[in-house]
């Protein structure tokens, strides 16, 4: 089981994501943003939180055009697994792997707090450790987490059961309270909340652990 965590110069949750993958039993490679390929045999790519290129231009916009992101897109197109958290979610929407965009929070302020999330579908390698309808506590920490997509896209996401998580008490103005979505093949998850910050009893909450454990369960060699 191999995970690759992408490191942009302004990533700051790369280590945290690597630790969470490691605790779930993955061997983890850190992949530099200037690399144009992923290590051989990678099962899942983690695109971490942070400020990839300083959030200049638009969060994730420059990262989406980096050498390593071409490799991530190819990996996703081949049916590989990708988990994008926070800035990683922003980057995945900027690459077009996931639909929609993350706008500035409706309150215009950065928000860091633990929030309640509703698991909207347990039908994915990421959310299979939960039951649909479970409510879990996961921290958020972002300035631009206000999910936007047009009505057709929202209807399609709903119709295809691709909304992974919604906020219990919408903190940022996201349409339909959306906190995380899946790709059409259900192998790419983008989410604003940070499961890697609730992955260990020492964090004061470990509701995020199930994401990494579920992935490990699916990706374990038979």
């Amino acid at each position: 089981m191999r995970a690759a965590v992408i490191v942009f110069p302004g990533s700051n949750c790369d280590r945290d994501l690597a630790v969470a993958f490691g605790q779930a039993g993955f061997s983890v490679d850190m992949v530099w943003h200037k690399d144009d390929r992923l290590p051989e045999g990678v099962d899942i790519v983690g695109v971490p939180g942070g400020f990839s290129y300083g959030d200049y231009l638009r969060c994730g916009a420059i990262a989406a055009r980096s050498p390593v992101c071409n490799a991530v897109v190819e990996h996703a197109e081949r049916g590989g697994y990708v988990l994008g958290v926070c800035n990683g979610f922003q980057i995945l929407t900027e690459t077009g792997i996931l639909p929609g965009a993350l706008l500035r929070n409706a309150g215009l302020k950065y928000i860091c707090r633990t929030v309640g999330l509703r698991v909207e579908t347990a039908d994915s390698a990421f959310t299979g450790g939960y039951g649909t309808g479970d409510v879990i506590d996961i921290p958020i920490a972002h300035h631009d987490g206000n999910y936007f997509a047009d009505d057709d896209t929202l209807a399609r996401l709903r119709g295809e059961d691709r909304v992974a998580f919604t906020y219990q008490d919408n903190p940022n103005g996201s349409r339909d309270d959306i906190a995380g979505i899946l790709s059409a093949n259900r192998r790419v998850l983008g989410m604003m909340p940070h499961p890697e910050r609730a992955a260990d009893p020492g964090h004061g909450g470990s509701d995020g652990t199930a994401v990494f454990r579920a992935l490990a369960g699916v990706l374990q060699p038979a």
Binding site: N12, Y110, I111, C112, R113, P139, A141, H203, G204
Partner: peptide, 19 residues
């Protein structure tokens, strides 16, 4: 002081034991 400290990332590095 939530209004203040919720504007700060208190958990990055995933080692914060008390916010």
């Amino acid at each position: 002081k939530q209004w203040v400290y919720e504007q700060y990332d208190s958990m990055v590095m995933a080692d914060t034991a008390r916010i």
